[in-house]
Write a protein that binds this DNA or RNA. Structure first.
Length: 516
RNA sequence: CGCGGGGUAGAGCAGUCUGGUAGCUCGUUUGGCUCAUAACCAAAAGGUCGGUGGUUCAAAUCCACCCCCCGCAACCA
């Protein structure tokens, strides 16, 4: 029976451009969404951008733009990025959408019984015009690194949301897996974090220190702090509350978030929903972070990898492949160009791409392109289906590779080229050849099917090549080999005395990084 | 101090719940094959499973203590 399902992704803060870490959210959600669609379900799939707050206003000022222009431009960058990943989302929301803002104000009013005025105290930088966390203040020895000024202890009046009121209910929901946190260790981590209850959360700032945000209804001196605004997107995008269809999709089946923002999604967000009388999402899928060559990505270190660069060099499918297969959903994983290149060449080009070539070529060569009777796929799909059901995505795609390797092995063992030679005079061998190649093609069609959630374009290409029973060979090879130049290799070496006599070597061209 | 994750072949990991010949991928070496993208297939070498002690006929696996790395502790995907 067809179900209506809903999956959400965290909305990125648009104060910087996308980095490879952002791929996680979209890809996980997209794999799941595509798989569910294959199973015949209808999937609502939200993505969007988080656009309010001081950091954005500051960035905009830095760029000499007003915040709206700035976010308009940055929103486009994220949208292009998401589109370039071939993400099959159905809804794109911006927190600056007037409709979203209006509903956020409505939500505030609904939560009014749990909102009270309080005093916020913390370390404040006059230059930044914002508070920093205690942790950050400690890390910088109490001096703002951007302005070289000591932080001041300041307090200001603002509104608090009584999340503490819902501590027991939230805890019970998580413990009883009504709100299931995946993986399990994150659930334990969070339950431990809230063992003394949820803390009330400051949800507004005086307008003078935060102007770029949703105004607090009934108090024009205050503006909402970003989390209330941002979290609400998951239901405002569905048309909550006036468009009743939101109820067809909510509660969300899966909410995908990074480990860094789990606490807001496991604590504050459920508390808000309880305050609104809305049911809690079913699953919170918490993914790990991506490190680059073993280190945390950081602008100061300058090791931030731009996913668009990866796509330019290797293509979307390769990026999707690497993140599906070699980046753990739940743990931190490493990205490096070297690993990426190896995975691409060994697995996509040699294992899969080459298998498609050799299969297509043999059918063309020995049977004039006509595939004999297709052998029924025989690979047991249980492990694949279980892996997807349990959100173990890399295990699922690995199953497809087991099939690919099995097919390569099968070809080597059955030696169709030998059968083809014998078949010239032996009808029985001709039949045997038919059978063997039919088996290979059958396997490939099954591979295409399994690959669809992960590599939709590749899946489609394989399908098109073999599906009709008459091979339509690809114009280009699937996944041509790519070698990135190693910049180190081009480094000048001190010439041997004998070499000095030789004509000068033309200068190596740096920055080539060419696809070859 | 507390909580969580981890320490297994040169690298990256599985196996630990439910003790019983230590496994996968990459890399290395050798062999086979020629349909294919110098691709594919096979075999070999390589590990005292962080340490110490305990339980057991038997411990990577269970128990105790210890060492080291990473993360979290409320606004960083």
């Amino acid at each position: 029976m067809s179900k209506k399902l809903y999956i959400t992704t965290a909305i990125p803060y648009v104060n910087a451009k996308p980095h490879v870490g952002h791929v996680m959210d979209y890809l996980i959600a997209d794999i799941w969404a595509r798989h569910q669609k294959q199973l015949g379900h209808e999937v609502r799939f939200q993505v969007g951008t988080d656009e309010h707050g001081n950091k954005i206003a500051a960035k905009a000022a830095e760029a000499g733009q007003d915040p709206q222009t700035f976010t308009d431009e940055n929103c486009v960058k994220f949208k292009q990025f998401i589109d370039s990943l071939e993400v099959s989302y159905t809804d794109f929301i911006r927190t600056t959408d007037p409709k979203h803002q209006a509903v956020v104000q409505y939500i505030w009013q609904q939560l009014a019984p749990y909102i009270y005025k309080g005093t916020y105290e913390g370390w404040y930088c006059e230059g930044c015009e914002s508070f920093v966390t205690d942790k950050e203040a400690a890390a910088t020895n109490g001096v703002c690194p951007d302005h070289d000024k000591p932080y001041q202890r300041l307090s200001e009046e603002n509104y608090y949301f009584k999340a503490s009121e819902f501590s027991d209910k939230v805890r019970a929901a998580i413990e009883g897996n009504k709100l299931k946190i995946v993986p399990e260790f994150r659930k334990h981590e969070f339950l431990n974090m809230i063992k003394d209850g949820l803390l009330d959360v400051s949800i507004s700032r005086p307008k003078k220190s935060l102007s770029w945000g949703v105004p607090v209804p009934g108090d024009d001196t205050q503006v909402m702090y970003v989390w209330l605004d941002a979290l609400a997107n998951y239901i405002t995008v569905l048309g909550y509350p006036e468009n009743e269809t939101w109820r067809e999709y909510w509660p969300a089946d899966i909410q995908v978030v990074g480990k860094d923002i789990m606490r807001f999604h496991a604590g504050l967000w459920p508390a808000m929903l309880l305050g609104l009388g809305v049911s809690l999402p079913k699953t919170l899928l918490v993914h790990g972070h991506v490190t680059v060559a073993g280190s945390k990505m950081s602008k100061t270190i300058g090791n931030v990898v731009d996913p668009v660069e990866v796509i330019d060099k290797f293509g979307v499918e390769a990026l999707r492949y690497y993140f599906s297969r070699h980046v753990s959903t739940t743990d931190d994983s490493d990205f490096s160009w070297d690993k990426f290149e190896k995975a691409y060449n060994n697995e996509l080009a040699n294992d899969l791409g080459n298998l498609v070539s050799r299969a297509a070529n043999m059918v063309m060569r020995y049977q004039a392109g006509v595939v004999g009777e297709l052998q029924k796929p025989e690979h047991d799909m249980f492990a694949y289906n279980e892996a997807l059901r349990e959100l173990r995505f890399s295990d699922a795609i690995a199953e497809a590779w087991a099939l690919v390797q099995g097919a390569n092995k099968f070809i080597d063992e059955t030696k169709p080229w030998v059968i083809a030679k014998n078949a010239e005079n032996d009808p029985e061998e001709k039949e045997h050849l038919d059978e063997v190649l039919g088996h290979v093609v059958g396997s490939l069609l099954q591979v295409a099917n399994m690959l669809y959630p992960f590599l939709p374009a590749t899946s489609e290409k394989i399908y098109e090549t073999f599906n009709t029973g008459v091979v339509k060979p690809l114009e280009d090879v699937l996944f041509p080999k790519i070698r990135l130049e190693a910049p180190e290799a081009a480094a000048p070496v001190l010439p041997e005395p004998a070499a000095l006599a030789r004509p000068p070597v033309p200068p190596a061209e740096p920055e080539q990084n060419e696809i070859g």
